[in-house]
Computed example of a mutant assay.
Amino acid sequence: MRALRFTFLMVLSMALLGCGDEVKSPATHSSASPADPALAQIYSNSCQLCHANPAANAPLTGDRKAWEPRIQQGADTLLDHAINGYNAMPPMGQCVECTEDQFLQLIGFMADQPLPQ
């Protein structure tokens, strides 16, 4: 119930924040999608809501500058944040069926750069 309430509030706040002038970084790709169909479906269902919406305050897909400090923390930290949540990032990134490998692939895709090992 708590996760449902959080999701509803997140969607509502993004809808309200989304009203008005649209701000886009030239480095981001709001319509980008992973080449792998399974990852593309996960991205569309779980990641895109925040990582393609500037109002969500999440690092945007393809914005290498925003992702760089996160990437420097290492794959283990990024994976931990994806699984356990971090700040406004919900635990499991709204993908309760994702594997660790899928999370790492999605992070690499959104960051538009390879993850350090």
Rank of each mutant, 00 (worst) to 15 (best):
A35Q: 09
M10N: 12
Q41V: 08
A35Y: 03
E22K: 09
I42F: 08
R5V: 13
G93K: 03
G93R: 04
L49Y: 05
A66G: 09
W67P: 00
I71W: 00
D101L: 07
A27C: 08
D36A: 07
S44P: 02
A32I: 02
H81F: 14
G85E: 05
A27P: 02
H81V: 09
A75R: 14
Y43H: 11
Q48V: 09
Q113S: 08
L79P: 03
P91V: 03
M14V: 08
R70Y: 05
N84R: 12
L4H: 14
E68H: 07
S30A: 08
Y86Q: 12
C19H: 13
H81I: 04
D21F: 13
A32W: 03
I107F: 04
C47D: 01
C19K: 14
L17D: 08
G62W: 00
A58T: 03
V11P: 00
A66H: 05
V23N: 12
D80F: 09
C98W: 04
Q94R: 15
T28F: 09
Q102T: 01
C98F: 06
H29Q: 15
I107P: 02
C47S: 01
S25T: 13
R70L: 10
E100A: 07
C98D: 06
L39Y: 05
T99D: 05
L17F: 14
H51A: 07
S13T: 11
N45R: 13
P69V: 04
M1V: 15
L9H: 13
T99W: 05
P90F: 02
P34I: 04
L79K: 09
M14G: 08
C19T: 15
A15R: 13
Q41H: 10
Y43E: 01
D63V: 00
D36R: 02
I71C: 00
C95H: 06
T61E: 00
C47I: 00
P59F: 00
L16F: 11
D63C: 04
S44F: 08
M1H: 14
Q105R: 11
L106G: 00
H29C: 12
S30L: 13
D63G: 02
Y86H: 15
M14E: 06
L79T: 03
L79I: 06
D21P: 11
T28E: 12
G18E: 06
W67S: 00
G62V: 00
T61S: 10
R2D: 15
P116L: 03
P34F: 03
S31C: 07
P91G: 03
G18R: 08
P37C: 04
L9P: 02
Q113N: 06
H29L: 10
Q73N: 13
D36P: 01
